[in-house]
């Protein structure tokens, strides 16, 4: 009983410490944002967004295909071809595009940023710059944070388009749905407003991804092995945060 109490006490403390650390990081980033280094933002967008683009395109296309193969099963059973476009579009816009874009980025960009920051600490760049009076938050952390968040939103929109195109191809090729019927079903049942919850989700996932990867990089031990540890920790934290946010936001939107 005592062991259980002390274990749960430790867990509560750990959670509180984690929440406190994120709050502190968020505060630092927000204060630094108005005067952040624009060039570093642009550089990170070009790395984060462009690097992850091919991966995002492939995952989006596969997801689009997958959604149709699955809905197609029910379409075949109940003979409602006219609903394929709506089903695929709804599932992709509301759920899969933001989820896939942010999961793809969490592997490629989140882990990369975490190990990069950990590497800058292990290589003494961050302490050296701090000692020279450089505001790390403005020069490095805030620009990277916003660059990651912006990349996720843009990639989610691209993923929407690519995944829907892939669904169309699979619906036509595999299920034999006429392209006109698919598009008509998308057109009739999906409005621009249907894209909004997905984009809001993508923005939330992007902020979580930025915060988790930077925090993992800052919290890792400042030595060579810490670099790998940072990448792994960032992956797990991001995955948990994205799924939890997904649950909360689906209820709200």
């Amino acid at each position: 009983m005592r062991a259980f109490l002390s274990a749960s006490g430790r867990l509560v403390l750990r959670v509180l410490r984690g929440v406190g650390a994120y709050a502190l990081l968020a505060g630092r980033l927000l204060i630094a944002t108005p005067r952040m280094d624009g060039r570093e933002w642009l550089r990170t967008v070009s790395i984060a967004g462009v690097d992850a683009l091919p991966l995002c395109l492939v995952t989006a296309a596969l997801t689009g295909a997958l959604v149709v193969i699955q809905t197609g099963f029910y379409v075949e059973s109940y003979g409602v071809t006219s609903l394929v476009g709506w089903g695929a579009g709804y599932a992709l816009f509301h759920e899969f595009a933001p989820l896939i874009a942010s999961l793809a980025l969490s592997g490629r960009v989140g882990a990369g940023q975490a190990s990069d920051i950990a590497g800058l600490r292990a290589g003494e760049q961050l302490p050296a710059l701090e000692a020279l009076g450089v505001d790390i938050d403005r020069a490095l952390l805030a620009p990277r944070f916003w660059a990651i968040a912006a990349s996720v939103v843009v990639l989610a929109v691209i993923a929407d388009v690519v995944a829907l195109s892939a669904s169309l191809l699979v619906a036509v090729g595999l299920l034999g749905v006429p392209p006109g019927a698919f598009l008509a079903s998308v057109h009739a049942s999906l409005r621009v407003a249907d894209a909004v919850p997905g984009i809001v989700k993508a923005a939330a996932f992007g902020l979580a991804l930025g915060a988790c990867s930077l925090r993992a990089g800052l919290a890792a031990p400042a030595e060579a092995r810490g670099v790998g540890a940072a990448a792994r920790r960032s992956l797990v934290a991001t995955l948990t945060a994205i799924l939890a946010l997904d649950m909360a936001l689906t209820g709200l939107l």
């Binding site: 991966l55 995952t59 997801t63 592997g107 882990a111 990369g112 092995r225 670099v227 790998g228 990448a231």
Partner: peptide, 18 residues
């Protein structure tokens, strides 16, 4: 180590979806 970790996850995810 960092690069192989990130690449391992990304490739693994792609193979799972494929």
């Amino acid at each position: 180590v960092a690069r192989s970790t990130a690449a391992g996850v990304v490739r693994g995810t792609l193979w799972v979806l494929a």
